[in-house]
Amino acid sequence: MSADDPDAGLVARIGQGDEAATRLLVNAKLPRLLALARRMLGDAAEAEDVAQETFLRAWRQAPRWRPGAARFDTWLHMVTLNLCRDRLRRRREATLPELPEQTDPALPADAAMDEAAQGRVVEAAISALPERQREAILLVHYQDLSNIAAADAMDISVEALESLLARGRRSLRATFAARDNRDD
């Protein structure tokens, strides 16, 4: 936990058993952590399991948390990411598809996709990216982590993160462009 960690006080209170602090942390962090797990796993129920497990670890960690290099929020993202990776690895080992089938959603007849359908197109495109590129984009674009926090959560250098982001975004541009040209 760095000296300027905005969650430092809250974590200390949770470590002392303060229930109000517990509620505050859940309200502040759960939506983002659940969203990350949902986007990583493509499955709402599994994402809830991961989010719950992340908080169980946070409750255990809080009393013994010591200032360090990473912020508590980064640590939470790292735990969520690792739990999701474990589940994805188990899926691969079970020779199941890594993600639920990501079909290219069909356009409605009038070619005017509603927002949900467009969201599914984006989901399919991001899910098709290589794992590390996908993680980098989820952490920076959707989780709004700084470059340093995202690199910490992924345990890579900032330069490597930037390269993953650039390659991932280039891929997505190409995917969307190909799709848009096909639809014209």
Binding site: L34, A35, R39, E48, A51, E115, Q118, H141, L172
Partner: peptide, 10 residues
């Protein structure tokens, strides 16, 4: 375009 992918809140 990326922002179009929304997920449910808890």
């Amino acid at each position: 375009r990326l922002d179009l992918w929304k997920v449910d809140a808890p």
